[in-house]
């Protein structure tokens, strides 16, 4: 049997793959040229070339506040989720207690449960606690969504780490705290940092839960976009989308680079 029929089949496969990638990427990437349009309408292909919508994004207080709010929430979420997620990973990977599997499943459940259900649940509880429309409520909610990413990353690092190293540290006189600070933490740091970046991204582009937990006075960037798109369709949205996309992509790439810095052996 020969390449005579294999060659076209290969070509077909490549074409199909390229098409799939195109369909996945096109709707996202189409906003990039659209954001540089000179016209007042969101059109594709864009008419003319200008950066006026970026100027508007930066100067319009509604957008800049949203931007700032998003950054604040994502930053706090990243910190909180990294600390909690690292501790949770240590507990579930190293701990020996009954129901360990169940606890692990519970921690990872936000990855599986539909976000809208989480949003409704949180909304009804947070209303009672009176923390809707506040940064506290949103950070708590986003932390719950982001913790699984930290746990998965840190757990992977922990599992690939030589346990003898911790025992060696102990035999050399380091108690549990110093063993963690001097040995474990430096060695799982790539996993922790990658987890933190994923946590930041999770919060940064989260919209469903945010819609429930924000208010007119406190909005994050994705929520602001959602509100604006429903009213005026102004190319600023495209500029904001492009910025959002750029930040997310950069952080993702960074996370992958960090992740590859496996502890040196």
């Amino acid at each position: 049997m020969t390449d005579s029929w294999r060659q076209p089949r290969r070509l077909l496969l490549v074409a199909l793959g390229a098409l799939t990638v195109f369909f996945l990427m096109a709707p996202t990437l189409v906003v990039v040229p659209m954001s540089f349009t000179a016209s007042n309408a969101l059109t594709f292909p864009p008419e003319g070339l200008s950066t006026r919508w970026y100027e508007k994004m930066v100067t319009d207080p509604q957008w800049s506040t949203g931007f700032l709010n998003s950054a604040k929430v994502a930053f706090l979420t990243a910190i909180l989720a990294t600390v909690l997620g690292t501790l949770a990973a240590l507990g579930t990977v190293r701990g020996r207690f009954p129901g360990r599997g169940a606890v692990n499943g519970l921690i990872l459940s936000p990855l599986i449960v539909p976000v809208i259900i989480i949003a409704i649940g949180m909304f009804s509880v947070f209303v009672r606690w009176k923390i809707t429309g506040s940064i506290v409520g949103l950070v708590l909610a986003h932390t719950a969504l982001a913790v699984p990413f930290v746990v998965v990353n840190v757990a992977t690092s922990l599992r690939s780490m030589d346990r003898n190293l911790e025992q060696a540290a102990q035999s050399l006189g380091a108690g549990p705290v110093r063993t963690f600070r001097r040995i474990t933490l430096p060695l799982i740091l790539p996993g922790v940092l990658a987890g933190g970046l994923f946590a930041f991204i999770t919060s940064w582009d989260e919209v469903v839960v945010s819609i429930f937990l924000t208010s007119a006075r406190f909005r994050t960037l994705p929520v602001e976009m959602w509100e604006q798109v429903r009213q005026v369709v102004d190319p600023t949205v495209a500029a904001v989308s492009t910025t959002l996309l750029a930040v997310t992509t950069t952080l993702l790439l960074l996370a992958f680079v960090v992740r590859r810095q496996a502890p040196a052996r």
Partner: peptide
């Protein structure tokens, strides 16, 4: 002393 040395790699 461990068989795989267990030196701290960092």
């Amino acid at each position: 002393i461990f068989q795989n040395y267990a030196l701290f790699p960092h």
